[in-house]
Nucleic acid binder design. Structure first.
Length: 350
DNA sequence: TCTGGGGTCCTAGGACCC
DNA sequence: TCTGGGGTCCTAGGACCC
C-alpha cells in the first residue's frame, strides 16, 4: 500500500485533501521525541519521510511555511484503525491467490504461479488494484517477478499506484542499474560500507565471486551473490510461529526516577503476559530487559529460567533483577539518565 | 538534528557435554 | 605440561525490516 497510514488519514479527513500530512509522534511544537511513521507525497516534497525524527519534520514544515507553502498537518498513529483497513484489504487479496504471505500491515505476497503467464498475472493485479481503490479508496503498488525478491523490488519501482512486471529473463538486467540499497537485507550500514569502496549499484556488486562476498560478509555474502542476480528461493510462508514478544517505551523525558521506572517495567510485564496469552501461548522461559540511556547507548540483559513459567510474579521478579545492574553505579557510574526501557519474552510454548 | 515500536536473523564467546 | 573435535545452549550486540 502506498503511504498506507497517511492514505487512510487523508481518505478519512477530506478537509485535509491536498495538504502535506505527517503521521507519527507528537511534534510538540518541534520539541517532540519520536519519529515519522508515514508522510504523504505532499509532505515528502518538504523532505519529510518515514523514520525521520519528528522534530526535524516539524522544522521542515516550518521552513516550507516561511516559503509561503502550507504547513504540514501532524497526526498521531491510529494503529487499530489501520489494522482494520489492512484486514479488509488482506481478505480481498486472498480472493486472488490461495497462497498468500502477509509481510507486515501494508505488504503482502501472492503466489500467482497458477496463472502460468506474467501477462495474466498482471491482468489479475490490475483488477486487484482497482478493487482496493474502489473499496478502500487508497492505492497500491504491485511488482510481479519470478520470486519474492524481484517482486518486492519491482513493487517499489513505480510508486505510487504502480504496476511493474519483471520476467525471469529480464530480472538481472532490471536489477543491475539499481542502487545496492534496493536489495532487501542491505541497510544503511552496509550501504555506507560498500560506498566507501565505490560500490553503489547492484552492477558493481556483481563483480565479486561468491568466495569474495563470503569472505567480506560471512554467510550473508553467499546469499548476496544470489540476490544481486535476482535469484531467491525462499517460499511464501502463510503463517509462522512468533519467536518473541515484548514491549519497549521511550520516556517523555530522560529520567532516573526509580518509582517511574519500576512502575513502567512492572506494568509492561503485565501487558506482555496478557498479549502472550492472547496470542495463544501458555509459558515463557527467557526474559530480556533492554535499557537505552540518554546518550542512546542501548544494552540488554537476559535470563533463561530453568523451567518454563506462566507466572506474572516470576516475569516481574526476573525483569526487575535484570534491570537492577543498569541502575547500579558500578554499571552506570555516571548515573546516566534512562531514555527507554523494554521487556521481552522468548522460548514461548503453547 | 536527534534518533519509535514491533519484530527476525546472525555472530561470537563461553560453558558444558560426549 | 599441554591438551582434539563436534555439538548445544546461553548471553549480548548489531543489522535489518515494516
Amino acid at each position: 500500500m502506498d503511504a498506507f497510514f497517511a492514505a487512510i488519514e487523508e481518505r478519512d479527513h477530506p478537509e485535509l485533501k491536498g495538504l502535506p500530512l505527517v503521521v507519527g509522534a507528537d511534534p510538540a511544537q518541534g520539541k517532540g521525541r519520536g519519529v515519522v511513521s508515514t508522510a504523504n507525497y505532499a509532505a515528502r516534497q518538504y523532505g519529510i519521510h518515514s523514520a525521520l525524527p519528528i522534530s526535524q519534520a516539524w522544522r521542515f514544515s516550518e521552513q516550507a511555511r516561511h516559503r509561503g507553502r502550507p504547513a504540514a498537518v501532524f497526526l498521531r498513529v491510529n494503529y487499530r484503525r489501520y489494522r482494520e483497513v489492512s484486514e479488509r484489504i488482506m481478505a480481498l487479496v486472498r480472493r486472488y491467490a490461495s497462497l498468500v504471505e502477509e509481510a507486515g500491515i501494508d505488504e503482502v505476497y501472492l503466489d500467482l504461479s497458477q496463472t502460468e503467464s506474467f501477462g495474466r498475472a498482471a491482468a489479475l493485479c490490475r483488477q486487484l488494484k482497482q478493487e482496493i481503490q474502489e473499496q478502500e479508496k487508497i492505492t497500491a503498488s504491485v511488482g510481479i517477478g519470478p520470486n519474492k525478491l524481484v517482486a518486492k523490488i519491482a513493487s517499489d519501482f513505480q510508486k505510487p499506484d504502480g504496476l511493474t512486471v519483471v520476467t525471469p529473463e529480464e530480472a538481472e538486467i532490471f536489477l543491475e542499474p539499481l542502487p545496492v540499497r534496493k536489495i532487501p537485507g542491505i541497510g544503511p550500514k552496509t550501504e555506507k560500507r560498500l560506498a566507501r569502496e565505490g560500490i553503489r549499484l547492484v552492477r558493481d556488486l556483481k563483480q565479486f565471486s561468491p568466495e569474495e562476498l563470503r569472505l567480506r560478509f560471512g554467510k550473508w555474502g553467499a546469499e548476496l551473490y544470489e540476490r544481486v542476480r535476482g535469484r531467491h528461493e525462499s517460499p511464501l510462508i502463510e503463517a509462522y510461529e512468533p519467536k518473541s514478544l515484548g514491549e519497549q517505551e521511550t520516556f517523555g523525558e530522560d529520567t532516573r526516577d526509580l518509582n517511574l521506572i519500576f512502575d513502567r517495567l512492572l506494568d509492561m510485564c503485565g501487558h506482555v503476559l496478557k498479549r502472550l496469552r492472547a496470542a495463544g501461548f501458555q509459558t515463557f522461559r527467557t526474559v530480556v530487559v533492554t535499557v537505552r540511556f540518554a546518550d542512546f547507548a542501548t544494552h540488554s540483559r537476559s535470563h533463561t529460567l530453568t523451567a518454563a513459567s506462566r507466572s506474572l510474579d516470576i516475569l516481574r521478579f526476573t525483569a526487575m533483577k535484570l534491570l537492577m545492574p543498569f541502575l547500579d553505579h558500578r554499571e552506570n557510574p555516571r548515573h546516566k539518565l534512562l531514555r527507554l526501557i523494554g521487556v521481552r519474552v522468548e522460548k514461548m510454548e503453547r
